[in-house]
Every structure is written in C-alpha cells, then in structure tokens.
Computed example of a mutant assay.
Amino acid sequence: MSGNRQTIDDGILEAAAIWVAKLQSEDATVADREAFDRWVAEHPDHQAAYHELRALWRDLGDVPIPAGRLGELRAQRRRRVGGFVGLCLAAGVAILSLTTPYGDRWRADYYTGVGEVRRITLEDGTEVDLNTDTALVVRYEQNSRTVRLLRGEAFFAVAKNPFRPFVVEDGSISATALGTRYSVGTVSADRAADVQVEEGRVEVEASGNKAILGAGETATIDRQGRLSLAKADVAVGTAWRDGKLVFSRRPLRDVLATLERYRRGRILLLDETAGALEVSGIFDLHDTDDALRVLETSLPLRVMRLSGFMVVVQSR
C-alpha cells in the first residue's frame, strides 16, 4: 500500500531525512523549497516519509541531528517485538555487523578508528602505517606472508625475505612486494582499489591481468576489474602518514569525500557547480573542521553545520 510505513523504501526515507535536515536550516533557500515541493509531488511515499521523519524531529524539540539518526529513531518508535522476534532481530543484526566497520574490526588483527592513523611492526620487521578506518588480517606461514586488507588503506615498508613472498590482497587486487615500500587501498563507496609504489617494485594482479609497477607508479582497479596504470606523486598520495592531506587541482567533490573519511558523520554536497571547483592546498587531517573553514573562505561556498554529524556544502 502506498505510503505505508512498513513498505516505504529505505532510499526514500534517507532522502526524506536529508530534506528534513536541510529545510530546518536557516540557510534553506526558496529554490530549496521549490525543489522539495517537486520531490514531494513525485510519489505519495515521499510525502509520507517526510511527515513521519519531521514528526520525529518535532518529538525531539527540533534538536539538529544527523539524517541517519532519524532513521534509527523511526525504527525505535515503531519497535514492538516479542521475545522470539527480538532474538531473530538480534541474530540478523549480528550477521549484518560482519559487513560494517565494527564487523571488520572484530575480525581484524589490527585496525584504526575514524580519523586515527598509526604505525605497527609485524613479526618479521615489516612496518605498516594504517590510515583512517582501516582493518587488516595478517597470516604468516613458513613460505609466505599474506596481509588481507578488510577495509581502508595501509602503507607497507616490507622487510626483505626472498623465500617468503609478501602479498597484500583485498579481494579485488593482489600486490606482491619485490622488495619495496608501497601502499594499498581497498575499494569503497567513493574510491577504487589502488596500489602506489614509493620504492622498489610491486607485482599487481587483478581479474587475471598482471603488471609490475616501479617507483612513482600507481595501479587502479575499477569496479569492473579493469587495471589502469599511471605515474603519480606517491608522496602526495601518502601524505596522510605525516598527518597531512595534500590536494593539487582536485575537484571539490573528491576533496570533501576524502575529508569525510577522517571525521564522524556526513558531508553532503548539494550542487555539482560547487563539486567541480578546483582545490589545491595542504590540510591537517586531524582538524577537518578547519579544512572546511578554509574552503568556505577561499571558494564561493556556503558550509552549513546542521549538527555535529552533518555538514552541508553548496555554492554561494
């Protein structure tokens, strides 16, 4: 039945939560409200979802909260389950957790939280720098050394041992060190899997394709498994190891996606005009709020902080 709270698609609920957050802001424009009216007119479920989440907002005294939290509150308000159903839900949550950051951390030998960067030393002397929200599993056998990258990105300064190959894999890519220093980033919602070589050589394999990278070369694997090679300034790409994020003529959309990886919550870009703006600069990854302030003052942008967990960016 259209508009039924049990059948409204989660994507519609998420969009409705964003509209609630956007329209409660003092920065909402006439154009925003006109766009919202068009969205509501597209389907009866849009209006039903908006009214329900708006009611939740009023229940909380109009305190600004992130869109995702509205969905959680919605679920809490309608939860009426018996003991058996509750156990089933708990089991479902446990299974689902294996695909979340917490599930990856539970399975990992080493991990970092959001915004955390740290260095570890493996049993063979290999040094590993873990970027924000990274998790990995280490499996050392008599004739092999394998690191499974569950999420995130890591830089490896590999201890040489020709009799025990050192391999990093993430399910889409395998990178074998040939005596080297290199980084591997796993695929995520906003980035492709990649390998960046600072020193030495790395043999990369993806979807049956192989390539050997030298210093200053990178390999990127897209979602179709295609392997692309390029030259790059690896020091820039791995500046996070020194607490810095370096951008050279990068579109704002990419810069915001990177900043979002180092903070809790969401950065929502509202228009493509702003997203296409070029950004060059060096930012402290431990202070993404300062980075947002610099972007707002140096570019024709408006940055709205709707809560401690949601930031909206649009053209000024």
Rank of each mutant, 00 (worst) to 15 (best):
R5W: 14
D9I: 04
D10W: 07
L13R: 12
A15L: 06
A21R: 06
S25K: 01
E26F: 08
V30T: 15
F36I: 09
D37W: 07
D37Q: 14
R38P: 01
P44H: 05
Q47H: 10
Y50D: 00
H51F: 11
R54P: 00
R58H: 13
L60H: 10
D62H: 12
V63S: 07
P64G: 11
R69Q: 14
R69K: 10
L70F: 15
R74F: 13
Q76L: 14
R77V: 14
R77N: 09
R79I: 09
V81W: 11
F84V: 12
S97W: 13
S97V: 07
L98K: 07
T100K: 04
D104K: 09
R107W: 03
T112H: 02
V117F: 12
R118S: 09
R119G: 03
R119T: 11
T121D: 04
G125R: 05
V128E: 00
L130K: 02
N143C: 02
S144V: 09
A157G: 04
I173T: 15
I173G: 00
A175E: 00
G179M: 08
R181S: 14
V187L: 12
S188R: 15
R191L: 07
V197A: 02
V204Q: 00
E205Q: 14
I212Q: 07
E217K: 11
T218A: 13
T218W: 03
T220M: 01
I221Y: 00
Q224M: 08
R226Q: 15
L227Y: 05
S228R: 15
K231W: 06
V246Q: 11
V246H: 14
R250D: 08
D254P: 02
L256E: 06
L259P: 03
Y262R: 02
I267D: 10
L269S: 05
E278M: 12
G281N: 12
D287L: 05
D289A: 12
D290S: 11
R293E: 14
L299G: 07
P300H: 10
P300N: 12
R302F: 00
S307C: 10
V312I: 12
V313R: 05
V313I: 10
